[in-house]
Design a protein around this nucleic acid. Sequence first.
DNA 1: CTCGATGCAAAATTTTTGCAGTCCC
DNA 2: GGGACTGCAAAAATTTTGCATCGAG
Lengths: 148, 148
Amino acid sequence: MEIKIANQFVKTFREFLSSKGLRITNQRLAIFDAALQFNVHFTAEDLLDKARALDDSVSRATVYRSLPLLIESNLIRELDVGKDYKYYSANMDSKTFQAQVICVNCDKIFEIDAPFMEWYGKTVAEKLGLTVEGQKLQVTARCDRDCC
Amino acid sequence: MEIKIANQFVKTFREFLSSKGLRITNQRLAIFDAALQFNVHFTAEDLLDKARALDDSVSRATVYRSLPLLIESNLIRELDVGKDYKYYSANMDSKTFQAQVICVNCDKIFEIDAPFMEWYGKTVAEKLGLTVEGQKLQVTARCDRDCC
DNA sequence: CTCGATGCAAAATTTTTGCAGTCCC
DNA sequence: GGGACTGCAAAAATTTTGCATCGAG
């Protein structure tokens, strides 16, 4: 069943590429497959490693060139939590707005639904006469003992 | 009067350095003075330029080594809006929590009071059993025509 | 076949660091 | 005078890019 779900996403990805007139290459498929294998957030370098396990011809450059496509296709989300590198995660169709809680002790990232925020940010931006494109709420926190 | 206010902050900075057993050097003073001259957000490179106008012996390394001090002293705030470099701004004692609205058209950063958010983020993190260290709300938006 | 896509390595960009010399206290 | 501080340039670290080659359609 897991595999069926993954196949569903792969199909969506292939359709996205086709609709944009982009080519369906082994490398792009390997990178996307690799992204789906992560249960937690991953970095570009993590993704390169796992993609190479599927197709060892995948290069770092192609990973970096593919990430914007995956984001544009809405199948991957980018998470900038203020580190020098970015995190990514497969976007399993979570429709509601999510806030991130980042633990400074264990570096774990919790994502929690915060549907109210969407309204709040929109209201704030519209007061300035701007059109909202996106928003994020990040809480930096510290685990006392047993969070990890 | 502007100058008097600035002098007040400079005094605070000198006291901060002394209390930490750090030395009061011309370079550190020039960098801090330069930071106070900005009316808008600035980057490390902006700060280097302006600090060099006050003391041309200031090096890039010293700017980068001073920024953490200025942040720790609570006289400067760091703003990571997801670009590859960071923004900074003199922290003129704004006590309330502020959200940032970043325009993708003109790159302008608006800061608005959002005191409610502080409570919201805290509540969310505490539900996870974590202690809040800090938080930020960022809205990415687009100006239609006359915002800049 | 054609042109988009890739791999490689070099470049770019921001920030950090090692080291020898400087100057605050 | 001693050790914190600085400047310089090289190093880090992540991401981007130029170019020759490859391969999807």
